[in-house]
Structures are given as structure tokens and as C-alpha cells.
Design a binder for these strands. Structure first.
Lengths: 156, 156
DNA sequence: TTGAGTTGGTTGACTATTCAACTTACCTTA
DNA sequence: TAAGGTAAGTTGAATAGTCAACCAACTCAA
């Protein structure tokens, strides 16, 4: 927190802030719909499967997965239970640290993810990157990182 | 949808997309926490109260409020019911169109909003606008609008 | 003026998320 | 090697959100 944090936003900032909120909600809604309609899954599910698919052995400790995905422990625990009932993920105990649990992507989970990916990527492209434009996307990325850095500082 | 939508994102786009997701989640989490701790309310609640506070007579038709806030009808209906039990909002029937319902901000609701506003504004400033910088905020706003325009087209 | 179609809004059942409590295991340090 | 502290995960109850069914009222054409 800076010493000089003002108690109010300027009118311009208000407008930007509202536009941001609207964009996030609408983009999210559109992507959730697309993913749900085409692949019967949530964006949350998608991100989890994605992270697992990239990990060595396609498995990750629950806590790592939670941190990567910005999920609370309990939310992740519930979510993985769901994925497990679909047969997309499997849990297994961790030898080194017996408190730990691994979540591992099953072959079926991998197949489902692979099937969902193109449609999702297309939607992200059409709704975000295409309107941003090539240069815009670079700028957008930089700005997002500036905000992320601050958020990381804040949570120590 | 453009004819040339690719089935995959480039690596750069992947990075930007992931950073965006992380930013949205973390920013949201931080703001929700601040608002909850200081004012016992949700960002959703805050936005609804805000919109009402700006409307003539501090009241709005349910459908207008829903559209403004990017809420589904049923979500809004449930949300307003909650706000009603806190005494922050009051419902009243609409004379011209007897299907309609007005949601009106009560004095108590207004007071609660007024009390919450400075802390929220400060948090938004510190976590978003300060790291963006003055020029960055302008650019960010433009980019957000480009995306919003596309989203608006898409939903006709 | 009646009947079909549409719009505004609510409800209830189901699913997802949060929160706090709990268990088990690890890590110090004395 | 016991004790207190902390980290990893799970669980269950409470809350919020989604979805589909529903009712009531408006519109408009025949």
C-alpha cells in the first residue's frame, strides 16, 4: 500500500474499472458456455486437466496444483473428487511425504482434454486475441504482468 | 468468428492467457477479501448497490439491473432476495407493466454502500491502477473496450 | 376478443464454493 | 524422543449459483 492511496477513483478510472468487470464476466460466460456445450466441462476443470497434462508423469501434488490454479485446498479437493468420479483423474498417495497426495491425469482424462482443446483455443482466440490484435496482445500481456507483480508482492 | 480462426494459441498467447487468468482470480480474491473483511459484503453485492445508487429514485427494474450487472435473471432474483433480508434493498411492483418489479436501495443500503466505498476504491487503486500507471490505465481501458466490443457483437 | 407467442420475474432442486474443524504426518528443539 | 508447532489434505455444513419449469401479464394478428 502506497502512502498516497486516494479514497476515490477518478471518473476515467471508474470507466475502466467497470469495463474491466464487464469484460471479465462476459468473456468468462462465453467461454464457459462454449466449453460446456462442446465438452461438458468447466473452465476450472479445463485448467486443472491442462496443468496435469504438462506435469512430469502427468501428476502433481495437490498443493502444487492448487497453487498453480489459484484454488483453495478445499475447493481443489472437492474438484478433484468430481474429476475422479468422471474417471479423468486418479489420486495416489505420496511415498516421500505421507501426508501428501498426487493427482494424476488418466488416459481418458487426457483424451477428453485433447478433444476439448481446439474448440477452447479457438474461442479464446476469437474473443480475446483477435480483438486485441497482435500488438495489443503484447501490450495487454505486459500490463497484466505489472498487475500480477503487485498482487504477488501484496501476498508476500 | 473469423474464417481463419486457428485451432491453437501461440506460445506467447498461451502465456498472456494464463497470466490473464491468474490476474483475474487473484485480483478478485484480494478485492473480495477486503470487501468482506471491512464491510461484510460481496463484490456482487457492491456492484448491485452501486448501480441502484446511481439510478433515478435509487431504483431500477430487475431486468435493467440484471443487464447492467451481467447477472442472469435468476441469479439477480436470488441476490436481491438476500439484499432484501439485510434490509439494504426493497422490492416494489411496477404500475405501467404489472409483470415488472422495481428494486430500490433503502437508506440503510445507501449508508452501507457509502461506508464500503472508500476502502474498496483504495483497494482497486492500489492493486490495479497504481501498478498500471497513468498511461497504462488508458491503454488498458482501450484494450478492454476492444474485447468488449467483440463480445457485444457476438451476443448480437 | 381470443389465442399464440413473448417477456418479466420467481421458485426449487441440483451443483459448486466457502469456511471451519479435523486428522495425520512432518519438523524442530530441547 | 517427546512436545509444540506447522503443513497437507479431507470432510460436512452452510451459502451462492445454475438450470429448467413455471406463472402472470403484455403484444399482436386474425
Amino acid at each position: 500500500m502506497t502512502a498516497s492511496s486516494p479514497r476515490w477513483l477518478t471518473d476515467d478510472q471508474q470507466r475502466v474499472w467497470r469495463a474491466y468487470i464487464a469484460m471479465v464476466r462476459q468473456l468468462n460466460e462465453a467461454l464457459e458456455r462454449q466449453l460446456h456445450d462442446e465438452s461438458e466441462m468447466t473452465m476450472g476443470d479445463y485448467v486443472l486437466l491442462m496443468r496435469l497434462s504438462e506435469a512430469p508423469d502427468r501428476q502433481l501434488r495437490m498443493s502444487e496444483l492448487a497453487a498453480d490454479s489459484v484454488y483453495s485446498r478445499s475447493r481443489l479437493s472437492h474438484a478433484v473428487s468430481r474429476l475422479e468420479t468422471w474417471g479423468w483423474v486418479r489420486r495416489s498417495g505420496c511415498i516421500d511425504d505421507r501426508r501428501g497426495t498426487f493427482a494424476q491425469l488418466t488416459d481418458e482424462g487426457f483424451a477428453v482434454l485433447a478433444a476439448a482443446a481446439p474448440g477452447h483455443a479457438t474461442a479464446v482466440h476469437d474473443l480475446l486475441f483477435e480483438p486485441l490484435g497482435e500488438r495489443g496482445a503484447v501490450t495487454f500481456g505486459k500490463l497484466v504482468h505489472q498487475v500480477l507483480d503487485r498482487l504477488d508482492e501484496t501476498r508476500e
